[in-house]
Design a protein around this nucleic acid. Sequence first.
RNA 1: GGAAACGUGGCUGAGUGGUUGAAGGCACCGCUCUCGAAAAGCGGCAUCGGGGCAACCCGAUCGAGGGUUCAAAUCCCUCCGUUUCCGCCA
Length: 427
Amino acid sequence: MLDIKFIKENKDLVKEAARKKHIDFDVEELLKIDDERLEILASVEDLRNQQNQFSDLITSITDENERKQKIIEMKLIKDKLQDGEEKLREVMQKWQMQMLFVPNVPDVSVPDGESDEDNKEIRVWGEKPNFDFEPRDHVDLMVNLKMVDFERGIKVHGFRGYFLTGDGVRLCFAIWNYALEFFSQKGFNPVIPPMLARSSVCMGTGYLPQGEDDLYKTQDGDYLVGTSEVPLMGMHMNEVIEKSDLPIKYLGFSPCYRREAGSHSKDTKGLIRVHEFYKFEQLVLCEANHEVSVSTHNELNRNTEEFIESLNIPYHTVINCGSDLGLGQVKKYDVELWVPKELKYREISSASYFHDFQTRRLNIRYRDEAGKLQYAHSLNSTAIPTPRILVSLVENFQQADGSIKVPEVLQKYLPDGKAGLGKDFIR
RNA sequence: GGAAACGUGGCUGAGUGGUUGAAGGCACCGCUCUCGAAAAGCGGCAUCGGGGCAACCCGAUCGAGGGUUCAAAUCCCUCCGUUUCCGCCA
């Protein structure tokens, strides 16, 4: 949510934001509703004022007849007031709905574009493997090594279902243990949050009202959310944070649930797109300062890049173009890992910042040096998602015989410190 | 599943029909005092709308919405939220 004052004073910026993000939003319509709202508000407040003055007057009148006369006059005001309040309610409802759809203004460094094809590559790292054999895809490799079972996954869950089994599980635990250590060292406090969240929290983070189709909903009206960003942001909803506690840095670890509505024909095979997965997530609340947000954003993204570099998986980083940005995001980087069999990069991480878009909706504030309350800034970035990371990992580290070498940093987290999976890899 | 209580500013907490935008306390900010800090004293300290260059002034707002009443933070209803008790399950 943006400040209505900001929207009024910068309506061209907001218009441009909607255009750049390819979001259908009519700023003029909102401003019209806002004018209407203020006009009705003014008249209602005026009537209330009259009512209050009458009220004061009536208490001071001792003459019974005069008093009765005034009470009759006041009834007239009351009728007008009720009429005005009715109108105010209607316009407020429209206004609040519209306000939820105002796009946040993207940074100038965000490229224009229609789709992820227009994302701008800003960094390329690592050497793509040159196999002297025909490489296999991750489904082949992992099924062969009994690291995953899709057939039974579908039997139990249905489309996009999977079981991780055996070394698939061990490899995930190795990644999780390593990630926990890696990001803890960067100053992130680990949190396992509830992934069942109220609608107010989903609303506050910007996943509702527009993203409802992508969320699983319970019969109690709660949502099974797609990222720990939601509960981690909700954690400080309606709170005033001590400035000395900022920045707050959380490392969320949670299962993630995504309906993937509208992606029915995409990535139908394998572990790229699943309904249920696990993710480490970096989340930061910091002071309301653009420079701090920007440098923190770079830092979060860099953390993920460093993590991938330590695994020695080739990747590139892109700045997402306007149309690839969500409603609230100011700027977003995606880190994409090389997938040899597909001969392309696949997204593994998204780092974004929001200014006070989310904290305004969630009412997360802090007291600044002058003692004034300010909305904090919020940012988040994937640390590492599993099992998606396994796609690139196993494909890049596959051997001619179908076994898989394991990145060195992970080896100590595997049973017996194994150097690989699928054959005699014991050190 | 059944029953009850509660929801006031950053926090705590008074207020149960009309001089309450809201006592008292804490926190926070400024000043005085101090070599400095603490303590103490003084002052300030909610949001929204309108007016003014400004200090400031005016108005509205006590979880949300509806109702009763000339008048609601205060009474009634609905919803949302919190807590407690009973039951059930682990």
